[in-house]
Design a protein around this nucleic acid. Structure first.
Lengths: 404, 404
DNA sequence: ATGATTTAATTTGAAACTCAAAAAAAATAT
DNA sequence: ATATTTTTTTTGAGTTTCAAATTAAATCAT
């Protein structure tokens, strides 16, 4: 039972230092050596040594100091930043009707993006692999480079996924269950592949680039067709032992409740997810009037009592679910990510107020609840963020091996 | 934002190694140097160096090798173990009617225990401090030593407690809210005090001495008057940002549900806790027939339909709560701790079966559910386990400072 | 018995790492 | 120009860890 992070036997012992400094540079976007020293507690001498290595490896670069930094005495600080050109990274989100892809540089800047429609949502493994490869190629072409130029690919899918093993217990995109999907797709692509549940990837994106940058413990909740959750504890995605935790959407909120798409009853998702609301609206009105949430929401705005009551219950159930998350995790932040949150039944003062009622009362401020709308590419960017982090870790590890 | 665990600037850099090796020795109870090396990945040379230090400091000791260890060639291994005499540790559990105390040696072996009745359950801070001191003195006297001999005291209380700050948001034992209780009690005692929520402490005890020894991620659930939870992630108690997470008992399981002692509605505790069951039984039967859970349980056994239905619902609610914990945490083990679990409405194949129904289905084995009955001293032992761990950490830190 | 063999623990010496202090670099202030 | 200030780099000392060699303490084989 070797444990990581304590004594590091054999070879190069600087790996953690390199990783730490790279993290700080990435978080700061640009930062001088002296500030890295202050931020990390590492001595300036060591910062110089490590940054010199990273520079030599091409992972970071110096920024030419501005001409007039404004009456500051002494040797001017030279800012460092991640070198965008060091790697190209792709992120893909596989959903039912489309594969969206984004390609970023090593900084995380978008270089190209693309949406590829899917004719059928559920398919066999080889077919999905082929589609993923095609989506990647199309996006690369659009950006003017080749798939060979990628250093890593992140893939996000809805379903139960053990990220560590690259194993898919179940996904709505696959006909088969229990597939070692990483192995399959890796064989198709010329670079490492990193696979995870889509909600975890959004959490990763929030951590690296979004509202979670300044925050060590937070929770991301995504609402779309289904309800997802990503948990960040101590700067790390929490995945559970089988890799299938954080199933917030399938948390039970009612003993003999509404039927969920997962086949069980009483799941939160069956009260809050798109399909659940539309189903109830259409059944109740005995018609197929509502095809989108926007339409249902509009009806409620126009004073339709039934629509109102449906959205009302969704909000109360959601508030209850959120309160349970706070009661269990006590996170410092809850980030509601995605476009759906712009409908105010899901985010409003009323929601927060109801949540407060259900959270165990202490005389300390509630966790902050934030809405963050990333736009359409949110999921793909999340996948890219994950790949970015993993490629960084690998590169640092290779550096260590090279040094030893 | 200095981060711990990576580069360790200044002074002695061996602290983590010492702690790691001490942890391994404690977990193994007794172990030879060569096996420490294997278990940790640290080289035998370094193990020799560090264990020599720990021996010199009196924290560990060698065990004289057995005479005939059974046909094993080569130099016989010399086992090391924690030296019980190194420290004396006390653990207290403050509950409504009694303060139970246990004193252990540095190994965790019980040296003395005592129960001191409390006339009134809720009292002002100075009064509780005085009672705690008295309980400690009585227990020390019983063990034949003095309160001055203690190296640390752990205290567990029901309520919302921020362990890190030693701050009590609310506890049923205290008249005041928002008390810096650690500071108050530390002033009364000649040694460091470590305060935490009682369920967390049981988790700590399971981790150090119980079912959690071989397990990095598990959850402990305690049921008594109320329902508590302790979460261990990566060998560490998870406490949340305000220190008041893991409120499993106040997780909401019903939108407009039963009234809980916390004043809210729909808490799991209001369906599963002792007081909730008795309340319902007595209201329903219009009498005061049932004064204990045992009596209610007996009625159900004898075929009383009402009693049966009450316990039935409790079990179903509990199963649903457990399923939610699995859906969110995906732990490798769930430990149900405490005597109450011997009533089979709370633990039975039926419960597990119901839980399985509510857990999101994947083709991977469910987390193990284990019942562990510690007897009366469970809570106090948990408090002692916490103090033991903290005293160990402090001692190691002092060793580091001494070396530097 | 006695030497060969095996396994555990310790010692030794080299390599790596971090840091404090000193030095160098590069600007502004006077 | 020279002094001052601030950042970065260099230098050298002190730790720490490890691989390899050595020592220790047992059993096995003859």
């Amino acid at each position: 039972m070797a444990r990581s992070g304590r004594l590091s036997p054999g070879g190069d012992q600087r790996e953690s230092g390199r990783q730490q400094i790279l993290d700080v540079i990435r978080a700061a976007e640009s930062i001088a050596r002296i500030d890295i020293a202050k931020a990390t507690g590492v001595s300036p001498a060591t910062v110089t040594a490590i940054t010199a290595e990273l520079l030599a490896a091409g992972l970071i670069e110096e920024i030419a100091p501005e001409v007039a930094p404004g009456a500051r005495r002494g040797r001017p600080r030279v800012a460092l930043r991640i070198r965008g050109g060091a790697h190209r990274i792709a992120g893909l989100k596989v959903s039912h009707h489309v594969i969206s892809t984004v390609i970023t540089d090593f900084v995380g800047q978008e270089l190209a993006s693309h949406e590829m429609p899917l004719v059928q949502g559920t398919m066999p493994v080889p077919e999905l692999c082929a589609q993923i490869r095609r989506a990647l190629e199309l996006t690369c072409t659009q950006g003017g480079f080749s798939i060979e130029d990628l250093s890593g690919v992140g893939i996000g899918m809805a379903g139960m996924i053990d990220a560590e093993r690259g194993f898919i217990y179940w996904s709505s995109s696959l006909e088969e269950r229990n597939v070692a999907f990483s192995a399959a797709i890796t064989a198709e692509l010329p670079c490492p592949v990193f696979l995870d549940n889509d909600a975890n990837l959004v959490a990763k994106a929030e951590h690296l680039f979004g509202e979670g940058r300044t925050c060590d413990n937070f929770i991301v909740i995504t609402i779309e067709h289904g309800v997802g959750m990503g948990i960040v504890i101590d700067r790390q995605i929490y995945r559970g032992t089988r890799g299938c935790g954080a199933e917030f959407g399938h948390t039970k909120v009612h003993l003999e409740g509404a039927l969920c798409q997962c086949g069980q009853r009483g799941c939160l998702e069956a009260y809050v997810g798109d399909y659940a609301l539309l189903r109830e609206a259409n059944i109740s009105s005995g018609s197929d009037r509502h095809r989108t949430i926007a339409s249902l929401f509009q009806s409620a705005e126009n004073g339709d009592a039934m629509a109102k009551s449906i959205l009302d219950r969704a909000r109360r159930m959601f508030a209850m679910g959120l309160a349970n998350v706070v009661n269990i995790f006590d996170p410092s932040k809850i980030i509601l990510a995605g476009a759906r949150l712009s409908f105010d039944y899901l985010y409003s003062d009323k929601l927060i107020e109801e949540m407060r009622q259900w959270v165990v009362q202490v005389d300390a401020p509630l966790p902050e609840v934030i809405v963050h709308d990333w736009g359409d590419l949110m999921w793909a960017k999340g996948a890219a963020a994950y790949a970015l982090e993993e490629v960084t870790a690998r590169t640092v590890r290779e550096l260590a091996n090279a040094a030893a």
